[in-house]
Design a protein around this nucleic acid. Structure first.
Length: 115
RNA sequence: ACAGUUAGCCAGAUGGUCGCAGUAUAGCUAUGAUGGCUAUAAUGAGGAAAGUCCGAGCUUCAUAGAACAGAGUGCCAGUUAACUGCUGGUGAAGGUGACUUCAAGGAAAGUGCAACAGAAAAUAUACCGCCUAAAAGGUAAGGUUGAAAAGGUGGUGUAAGAGACCACCGCUUGUUUGGUGACAAACGAGGCAUUGUAAACCCCACUCGAAGCAAGGUUAAAAGAAACGUUUAUGUUGUUCGCAUUGUUUCUUAAAAACACCGCUUGAUUAUAUUGGAAACAAUAUAACUAGAUAGAUGACCAUCAAAUACAGAACUCGGCUUAUAGACUAACUGUCAAA
RNA sequence: GGAAGAGUGUCAGAGUGGUCGAAUGUGCCAGUCUCGAAAACUGGUGUACUUUAAAAGGUAUCGUGGGUUCAAAUCCCACCUCUUCCG
């Protein structure tokens, strides 16, 4: 799991990022990001009720978290991120999601490959 | 062997690497705050956690108040904290059977409804018919309609007919016996009057105050703006009475006006044994403490088990009901066929 | 987590248990009008299966499945889907 300080929690923060951040979409995964005001970066995940029942939603959320943990060290740490799942993601395997996330971050030019 | 009925049980396991949650212990740090970080330890979703359909605990709302309205239940006995639940029985219906199902009081307290068709839909003014020569009547056997037509079948009887009378069956009703009781059986009597519908209104008996952990409480509580109101407003399910509070509500800014902490998990708890009971269930003894999150904890990868998983994720807590469900197992019983 | 409400032709939306496949509007089709269109006016029109040479007919269907009733879109029960409200 992510550490507590790296999680987005407040509804207010989510609203702020949605309002002011930039959004990009790739293959049923959506990323909204903005420069951070906190000491470290923060990440949030959003999975809506459209995707399925609670079991399915939990599964998707866990896979998203796990994929982010794998990419954690390669990501630019001066930004806040929200990942939003779209319909169809429940049929993708873990590896597909991980690969997809990596490409999405690359597309936003936030991937720091030197570190 | 095949086909079934009932009851019960399991809900992938083991090992390795990384990672999460609260708890306990130790250390470091220092917040408005019971905070934050690191290490170690053991623990960490279900049989339905689901639907929210019933019932309770718990909390708040005058005194837990009054009346009317409203809602629910409905064979009998037992059981439970409580229930529309459960257990056993009675009756009815279904099945060859094991067995299963049932909102199963009252239509003789009253009101309503029964379309179309039909003579007539409940007070029979009787259409065709039958009978008396006709008139005026008698008749409810036969006909047609309809979901339903005024006890049924067979005889006696008659002008023709009719429970008018008789036998059997059904119905109503009385007594006796058995049973705690629902009810059953036996023996008589009536001579059939009074169709169906109460998951139509209703009557009878019993039960129900309301809202829900987003309940509600604790600490702290700065500045600005708007709306309503001056005995109104708000709360107490609907209405009336009665009662309580004295301002109430909303928005903006700063971590924040709770997004902190309590409520929150030791409980009608779980496991085992014994006793009582036909069973549901109850009593006693011993042992155990077993999730408590708040953008919301169980995941990712690898190996083995022939193969590999269905329905599905705690959100204050229990007892039921209902619905979803791959695969595997246990026990008892029934029918058919074959062989001995 | 808790509390309410809704589901009827293509779409919107009425509907006392009985002549209801079901008012009305909209959409679609045909006609009148016009040089041609629009508007207006008139008439028709749900879907599936079945039967027939065709017309006319028959059966089912008011979210799904049961029940009460002679008879259910309507009454009762269970389930499914959608919507709204409570910080």
């Amino acid at each position: 799991m992510l550490k507590k300080e790296n999680r987005l929690k407040k509804n207010k923060h989510f609203k702020y990022i949605y309002k002011n951040g930039e959004t990009k979409v790739l293959n049923k995964l959506c990323l909204t990001y903005i420069k951070t005001k906190f000491k470290t970066y923060k990440v949030g995940f959003s999975v809506s009720k459209k995707i399925g029942k609670s079991v399915v939603r939990n599964k998707v959320k866990r896979r998203l978290r796990q994929s982010f943990i794998c990419l954690q060290n390669q990501v630019n740490k001066k930004y806040n991120y929200i990942f939003v799942a779209r319909e169809g993601i429940e049929n993708m395997s873990f590896l597909e999601i991980k690969e997809n996330m990596k490409n999405l971050i690359k597309k936003c030019e936030l991937l720091n490959e030197n570190i």
